[in-house]
Nucleic acid binder design. Structure first.
Lengths: 207, 207
DNA sequence: TCCTGTGAACAACTTCACAGCG
DNA sequence: CGCTGTGAAGTTGTTCACAGGA
């Protein structure tokens, strides 16, 4: 079962994790494909297919052990150990991220970066703010694995390249980056405008 | 030609728009499927297929008129006129959105909402902050069509239902909403944790 | 019995390849 | 000739339906 995994499957894995976090609160120990399916509004066979890409976690006639399943999914997503993250841009979005309980999801922001003098050397929510000029050095020293880019668009490419030079193996950006990057690494976007536009389309379609 | 449109096509339409905004700066008037394809790192035939779902915009042997194409895509996405938006939650994410040039994309935040007394009645970036208790009334009065939810998770369902009761036809949420909603409307999420998790998976896969 | 895991059928999406028009 | 628009082929993703184990 070691075929290529659909990206959609990976996204659903994150939803399964949200479901597990939710169900764990109730004290349950076993869960069935149907439970995950209902939570995510998809079919139960799709849940089983998704999980089967990675092995056989379940018990026939019973279901899945919640704690085992959680461990497995975290392993698959690479968040079985905490990943160290550097954050560029301490504006509103940056601050929101610093206040966000990312650690619970397996990520820890270990350093923040900005170019505004009044911020450099301050700690925000326990995270030190460095100057963007020191980004390569700090990324290397602290061995940061991922970068989050929350700077204005015109600064995004430069910041991305610095992160990569500092050793970042993947980037999440709120700003469109005019590629090409110095080195090809996984790059994802959070596109607020795009989401609003798609929502707008869906609204029009309804009518 | 009026088949079901893939969601992926709609998302790419938003990318085409970003490309058009970018190319317009250069003063060009004509663009070809290959230009859009290169910008978006996809194949040119996919660009043509995407556009062909909605009619024949191009000129054979020449390409697409940039201004016509922009008009068409905006029409398809329902942003040929500005859509009025209400924003719940004036924390860091909410403030980031208030500072974001959404108007350029066809959206205008006409009212913000929070429950913190010190914010109510203030204007932030020209947008009045109301109490969440007045959300239904304000949504109706101002005829807000869309809602953005940037409140803590435990408040999200309540806020969503109020927006819908106030007449919102679609919602964009930063917090997971435990459905069901009072009434089914298009609902999209921006899931920062999920994006980080997927990125983490992609990083592991590379290795 | 009940629920998982999975071949096989089906559906959705993308690419190919070229007809057809400017 | 060059580029669009589109059937047809190819590929990828989802659902069906059931064998098989607990």
């Amino acid at each position: 079962m070691r075929k290529r995994i659909p990206e959609a499957t990976i996204r659903r894995l994150t939803h399964y994790l949200r479901c597990i976090e939710f169900i764990k609160e109730t004290g349950a120990e076993i869960l069935q494909s149907r439970d995950l399916a209902t939570f995510c509004s998809i079919s139960d066979s799709l849940v089983r297919r998704d999980l089967s890409y990675f092995g056989e976690f379940g018990t026939k006639g019973v279901g899945y052990s919640i704690s085992e399943l959680e461990k497995h999914i975290k392993k698959i997503l690479g968040i079985d150990r905490t990943k160290k993250v550097g954050l560029a841009g301490v504006g509103n979005i940056g601050r929101a991220l610093l206040n966000f309980p990312l650690l619970k999801n397996g990520f820890s922001i270990e350093a923040a970066f900005d170019i505004r003098d009044e911020l450099i050397g301050k700690k925000i929510n326990g995270v030190m703010v460095y100057h963007e000029n020191d980004m390569i050095k700090v990324f290397k020293e602290k061995q940061l694995e991922m970068g989050i880019i929350a700077v204005p668009q015109q600064a995004a490419l430069d910041v991305a390249n610095k992160m990569i030079e500092g050793g970042a193996k993947g980037l999440l950006s709120f700003a469109l980056i005019q590629c090409p990057l110095k080195k090809k690494v996984p790059l994802r976007y959070i596109e607020i405008a795009a989401e609003l536009e798609i929502l707008s389309y869906e609204i029009e379609k309804e009518e």
